[in-house]
Design a protein around this nucleic acid. Sequence first.
RNA 1: GGAAGCGUGGCAGAGUGGUCGAAUGCGCCGCACUCGAAAUGCGGUAUACCGGAAACGGUAUCGGAGGUUCGAAUCCUCCCGCUUCCGCCA
Length: 423
Amino acid sequence: MLDIKLLRENPELVKKGITAKKADPGLVDQFLKIDAEWRAATVQLESHRAEQKKLSQERKIEEAKQNREKIKQAEEELKTLEEKRSELWMRIPNIPSEDTPVGKDEGENKVLRKWGEPRKFDFPVKDYMAIGEAFDLIDTETAAKVSGARFGYLKGEAAMLEFALIQFGLSVLTNEKILKKIAAKVQKGYSAKPFVPVIPPVMIRPEVMQKMARLEPKEERYYIPTDDVYLVGSAEHTLGPLHIGETIPEEEFPIRYVGFSTAFRREAGSYGKDTKGILRVHQFDKLEIESFTTSENSRKEQDFIVAIQEYCMQQLELPYEVMQICTGDMGGPDIRQIDINTWLPSESKYRETHTSDFMGDYQSRRLNTKIRRKDATEFVHMNDATVFSQRPILAILENYQRKDGKVEIPKVLQKYVGKKIIG
RNA sequence: GGAAGCGUGGCAGAGUGGUCGAAUGCGCCGCACUCGAAAUGCGGUAUACCGGAAACGGUAUCGGAGGUUCGAAUCCUCCCGCUUCCGCCA
């Protein structure tokens, strides 16, 4: 949620920001109206309570009995207002950064740069499903019988490639030497503190999911009613609350994690899209970054994270583009969102493989994760981002295919897969 | 899954219906003493919200949510978590 001061003192700025995000600017006025009522009701209740304290200390029991009714009434009024206020407050999304392109949908996202030349093939290109079937790497048919649509079995080298990507990713993110070089590109001397590897829970309480501003849209989430828990849609959901309710001394920052978990997504509302294959599935594994920084470093941290993502892709020698997501396409809690799209030869298109979300203090305000500084305590700034999901496996299969049908394995992954060629 | 116990400030730990936002110790900050330090002494040391230009005042917070009461850290109910024992299990 946004800073209450900003909402009260600069509502026009907020309205402008959220309008660009396709949210209703009327939310701000509704919120401010309820907020004013809430403040008045708070004063009312508190004065009744002060009176009650006084009466009961003086043992004026009869008067106190009567006053108690006033308190009860005032409490009920306040409770109603509080619920409305908080509901509206949470519905107001974060404000996009200055440099975020204003646009209505993904068509207005901006390509910042491209790396690598898409390969020219002198033979008919097979898509990853054809390659997967040829070597028994991907099985969606059995998965459909066993689990339903939008599931898949990864087998053989495909399974090995997933573990290879994870291990390669971890080897980069825990290596201070490599990080130092990458950090220096962002700013000379920028912190190269390694990421702490984490295997987080994949189930999460509703109230924590709410604090992460990730409960909505609910129809996108898997929910287990018997235990009142949601399945995470990303490791981010349980990595972000790693310091819930904590106030952490400034010296400990930046705090960086790299978590591995399965992600569960209902893919509601994407019925027509990517129905073939396993580009869009209900369940996939992902290596994810979550980092906590001071407010003055948070934007730099995102640049650092994107630089790490690019480094990894360059090591894999996969052509990609870096895209800045426009206001209309970005996530509600984001200030700034950068995606990396990887070249997929069968579609002759770059497809999304990575995302990087800069959230500022939008999540930490509700999580109550703070930083203790010399003369103030403030909310930490948070970033999350993909290191590798399963999608790059598909890009590898396609980009590395040969005329003889076999598939080479990227050099940096060979030691993890244990071979150089599939087939 | 069954049984028992526990959950108090940065930490340890007292407090079982009123004057308790909470003893005491440790830690931390300031001052004194000292050439300096240690030790010692004195003072201070939670957070959030509301009102106020400010000084300051008010309210809430003893795991969480309800309840009883004029009044709750203290009594009751439910929930969450932790510990120990039993069962089960990778």
